[in-house]
Design a protein around this nucleic acid. Structure first.
Length: 351
DNA sequence: GAGACGTGGGC
DNA sequence: TGCCCAAGTCT
């Protein structure tokens, strides 16, 4: 707590958090926390998993729907897989949802429905890595663990004017973050640093003029804050092409597939289709009279761009196929689809 | 250690 | 428009 000279960085951040903490459905406000209210570990866990690589704005409604539908970890553990995957649809990184269910079932069956409260025990659970284990331990149980997420990395790189690029500089940034972690109110402090990174110490155009720790900030003094943290350059995304087939029977039923658990969009509902290849592919549809729709679906994943052509047909009565699902009209909800599949549906519906 | 893994918002 | 980025984890 000393390596910023005389300035009490963690104290300043806690003071700022007391005045500016943002309201969130999973958060216990600092005043309530001071009155002894503890957060529900289930809600903290769920929010932290949803927040992995995802913004608060995107998570908020999903969190409310999940907790209304499954108020406890035992309730979630008892939920059917497809209902959980459907509720997660649109949030992305679907391995999180599969691991969420695995984790809920481990907690329900092996821990009696009570989350462990230590970093090491949490780290052993599916979908919980170093960040999330520290966050749950700090926020839900007020243990002095150090959270190191993208926000904290940025704040530390700037406070100490670290020019070494990520991810190599991570250990160095972690040391600084650990040195600042207080033994009083570590849970509020963890949220304070992340709030600061999300609202003031932002990646572009940081609001240094209203920052509670501008005085001890080395990057602010050097004028380098907008260049930090440095990162190793990323590779360009290739473009891939594919076809999807949307067939509907006279009764309104759709022919769909449940994607395998491993890999892209694993475990999610989708339209049957070709492989997604490097060149414009010409994969033949399964036997049927297919009509190609005008237009195309463009979608960008983490590591490639995708251009999809959409084909449609009327499903013959009595059609069935191994590996494919006949989704009755009343059971079909577009909101159960991952976004790229929903885009294909939207194009189909608009024609 | 580096690549796979989604999506939407901001500039 | 296209690129960057977000409270990372798993393999």
């Amino acid at each position: 707590m000393r390596d910023s000279g005389e300035f009490d960085v963690s104290g300043a951040l806690l003071d700022w958090y007391d005045r500016h903490a943002r309201e969130m459905p999973w958060r216990v406000a600092p005043a309530d926390r001071a009155a002894g209210v503890m957060p529900d570990p289930y809600r903290i866990w769920l929010s932290e998993v949803m927040l992995q690589q995802t913004t608060v704005a995107a998570v908020r409604d999903y969190f409310v729907r999940f907790t209304n539908r499954w108020p406890t970890v035992k309730a979630l553990a008892a939920a059917p897989d497809d209902q959980v995957m459907g509720e997660w649809a649109g949030l992305g990184y679907y391995a999180r949802a599969r691991n969420l269910l695995k984790c809920a079932r481990v907690v329900a069956e092996q821990h009696g429905g009570t989350f462990p409260d230590t970093y090491d025990a949490l780290l052993n659970l599916p979908g919980i890595g170093p960040y999330t284990a520290a966050a749950i331990s700090a926020i839900a149980f007020d243990r002095p663990e150090t959270v190191l997420d993208g926000n904290v990395e940025r704040v530390m790189a700037r406070l100490y004017d670290i020019h070494d690029p990520l991810p190599g500089s991570k250990p160095q940034l972690k040391e600084h973050a650990a040195a600042l972690t207080p033994f009083t109110r570590p849970g509020d402090y963890a949220q304070a640093v992340m709030d600061l990174g999300a609202t003031i110490c932002t990646p572009k155009s940081p609001a240094c003029g209203i920052c509670p720790v501008q005085a001890p900030c080395a990057a602010r003094a050097a004028g380098t804050q907008s260049d930090l943290p440095r990162k190793t350059p990323k590779k360009p995304k290739p473009t891939r092409y594919g076809h999807v087939y949307i067939a509907q029977g006279d009764n309104g039923a759709f022919l769909m597939e449940r994607r395998p658990d491993k890999g892209l969009l694993g475990g999610m509902l989708g339209w049957p289709g070709s492989e997604w290849s490097d060149g414009p592919s010409d994969a033949p549809p399964f036997p049927c009279e297919w009509r190609e729709l005008p237009g195309e679906v463009r979608h960008t994943f983490t590591h490639f761009h995708l251009i999809l052509r959409i084909w449609t047909a009327t499903l013959p009565v009595g059609w069935s196929h191994d590996d494919l699902i006949v989704m009755e009209k009343h059971a079909f909800r577009p909101s159960d689809l991952p976004t790229v599949m929903r885009k294909a549906y939207d194009l189909w519906r608009s024609t």
